[in-house]
Simulated assay, not measured.
Amino acid sequence: MKVLVATEKPFAAVAVDGIRKVIAESGYELQLLEKYSSKADLLGAVADADAVIIRSDVIDAEVLDAAKRLRIVVRAGAGYDNVDLAAATAHGVVVENTPGQNSNAVAELVFGMAVMAVRNMYNGTSGTEMKGKRLGLQAYGQVGRNVARIAKGVGMEVSAYDPYCPDDVMVADGIKPVHSVEELYAGNDFVSIHIPATPETKKSIGFDLITKMPKGGVLINTARKEVIDEEGLDKALEARADLKYVADVKPDSAEELKARFGDRVFFTPKKMGAQTAEANINAGIAAARQVVDYLRDGINKYQVNK
């Protein structure tokens, strides 16, 4: 069987070596398609692949049509909105992610950006400290739990809103559950967003929610740009000169927001949450192991298109 690693932004060499070792030990064949320049390259490479490992690469109906032998796609990372789940299901293809492998990397970036925000983007002026401040987590999954762990070490008060996570799980971790997104925003000096982009969440965070934040509030987004109502964000920053927005997901209106609000906003040049050596290696090797588990034993623990 052939396992294709299709990465427009390649894994680190150490991660590729680890993937190669896992696939070789299984007796399968590995094919690399790195830094490809056109979709046609991907369409050609998937034609005889039984499995595909990707990062942010797009797997849509056209790719699935071309992949006649494909049985499984594994996205090395937590998010999987770059894969057309409905089309994959229609083609009988299992889609998996690798939850938790990038979580610490993203959580550390949350704090890097939070510190930068409260120190006024290091512009030389007096800022504030994070100890004793309140942090709200919008979703309490793997990334949120790592953010909570770091925040408690810093001495912050942490609460979370996640209708899919039982209160007793949060309480056991020393986290205060809140029961509405409005309560989360109104009750925290920092809010860190960790929700996926779904029909329900897209553009769900706008003027009304953002302006519920207390004076000096900092909104941090390492999730997806689509969950922000950019018009509402612009309006909120205009109405409240004390608010700040920092994101690892550059909004479409980034240049305009930066021109208008200066040091009150910050955006990484490209999504960097998982861009650490450790996360790169962990996610790539986990993806390879999940491919082998499925092809060899039918194990689909991390399937997301059930």
Rank of each mutant, 00 (worst) to 15 (best):
L85Y: 11
I281K: 12
R20L: 03
A186D: 04
H194V: 10
A148E: 07
S38M: 10
I59S: 09
E230M: 06
A151M: 08
K306F: 10
N120M: 00
V93T: 08
R119N: 09
K35A: 09
A90V: 00
R69V: 01
T7R: 09
E256A: 08
D168Y: 04
G187F: 06
E278H: 00
P166F: 00
G77P: 01
K35M: 01
L257V: 09
I23M: 04
L85T: 08
V22E: 09
V73W: 15
P166V: 09
Y122Q: 10
A172L: 04
N82Y: 14
P199D: 15
S103I: 00
M156K: 13
V218S: 02
D41F: 11
Q275M: 09
T268S: 12
R296D: 15
K176H: 11
A247Q: 07
L42D: 14
D293R: 13
F190K: 06
N120K: 12
Q101M: 09
I210R: 01
V3R: 11
A15G: 05
I72V: 14
K301E: 07
Y302T: 12
Y294M: 02
A67M: 02
F266P: 15
V14T: 10
R296M: 07
V147D: 13
A49S: 06
L32D: 06
G27Y: 15
V95E: 13
R20V: 03
M121C: 08
Q101G: 00
R240Y: 05
S37W: 10
V14W: 01
E157D: 12
V249D: 11
E230S: 04
K215M: 06
G44C: 02
G144D: 06
E231K: 15
T98A: 12
H179Y: 15
A24M: 07
A47R: 11
G153P: 11
I53H: 04
V291I: 14
S159K: 07
V291M: 12
A254P: 01
E238H: 07
V181L: 10
G18K: 11
S37N: 13
D162S: 12
A114M: 13
L219R: 00
A40Y: 08
A66V: 02
L137S: 13
P251E: 09
N280G: 07
Y140V: 05
G127T: 01
A87T: 08
N146C: 05
G187V: 01
R289K: 14
A197M: 09
N221M: 01
L30G: 08
N146H: 12
L233F: 09
K2S: 13
T125C: 06
V118E: 08
T201L: 04
R145Q: 11
